Amino acid sequence: MSRIAYGQEDFSLSLPISQSALVTAQAFAQQQPTSEKASRVLFNTLSILTVNYYLDLMGIETNLSVGDSWNPVLRLCTDVSDLEVSGIGRLECRPMCASGKSCYIPPETWNQRAAYVVVMIDESLLEAKILGFSPSVQTEELLVSQLQPPEALTAHIKQYQQNKQPVNTQTLVNLSQWFAGVVENGWQTVESIFSQPEYRPLYLFRSSESALINRENETMSAILRGKVINLGIQIANQPVILIVELIPQENQKTNVRLQLHSTGSKIYLKSGIILTVLDELGNMFLEAQSRSADNYIQLQFNGEIGEHFSIRVGLDEASITEHFVI
């Protein structure tokens, strides 16, 4: 393992490609219908195995087999190049040609990975260079000049792992129990929250209030519960109301609708409040951000019985997270 310097900004890390890695990549490539697709799969797989080898040297546990890249159907139908890292989720491992100045990142991976690692595969297929990584991506072309050094990747992963604290089962909100009338402390009916003048939104006219409160009667077995959330001085001591609506669906699925409302004398939510749904691994699944003229923001998704997720409400450096199981 050696560091290669091509210029002032270069901090790439050179690693050998093992015979077993090459055999695996070539086997995956041979399953593809066209030479173009075969080449893409070959280089994607070598990139993944290079990053996997490096993390193994650094003592970081990975799981190759659970990634989409090891699924033959997904490998055939999509452009996948992911690596599962224990405790944080997936890295995107992308190959780049020697003459390139940027690396293509598929839009479907944006905000879905713990980091994006760029790898250059030598034409001999005997050596690969990890050029660096980016913690996040918002564009299809990731510039090499934007990459952080490979050696910082392990620190990034460890920090990511530390930020994912285990969920205390005492704070886990069991949504299925809501249908049986069992509701955790802090969660109330919408009607009981709106009956308190300090929380009832000023913009909420009686007609719209009645529609929200009575929505449970409009769909069979629908449940609405709310919770007052206070981010303190970050929103000028003005609480917001998180409303969770559950609607049972077929095949043991549940439709979950989330709304975040302003309270009291505030007609609009403070601009920049972020409502985020996190999956079981803590990865961002859905997100909405309030604008200057939003009374409320909303997210909606379907989940299965037993599925875990979290809801985070945040503004600037302040945030509150609630953990749920359907």
Rank of each mutant, 00 (worst) to 15 (best):
L46R: 06
V137I: 07
A21K: 10
N237C: 12
S20E: 14
L147A: 05
V144Y: 05
R291L: 12
V144D: 01
N237Q: 09
L46M: 06
P201Q: 04
V23F: 15
T34H: 07
T34A: 11
S124W: 09
W70D: 08
S2W: 13
Q161G: 03
I213P: 06
K227P: 11
L286R: 06
L13T: 05
L258P: 04
P149A: 04
Q234E: 13
E140K: 15
F179W: 02
F11L: 11
I241W: 07
E140G: 12
R291K: 10
T321A: 13
Y160C: 12
A115Y: 03
Q19E: 15
T171K: 15
L83D: 02
V23P: 10
E280D: 08
T276I: 07
F285Q: 09
R257G: 13
T109N: 15
M220V: 11
D79I: 08
I273M: 07
L246S: 05
K253P: 03
V117W: 00
N111R: 11
R291N: 14
D279C: 05
Q31S: 12
I105R: 01
E322V: 09
D82P: 06
I48H: 03
Q196T: 10
H156D: 04
K266Y: 07
K253L: 13
T45D: 14
E123I: 04
N63G: 11
E123M: 13
Q196E: 08
E307R: 10
K164V: 05
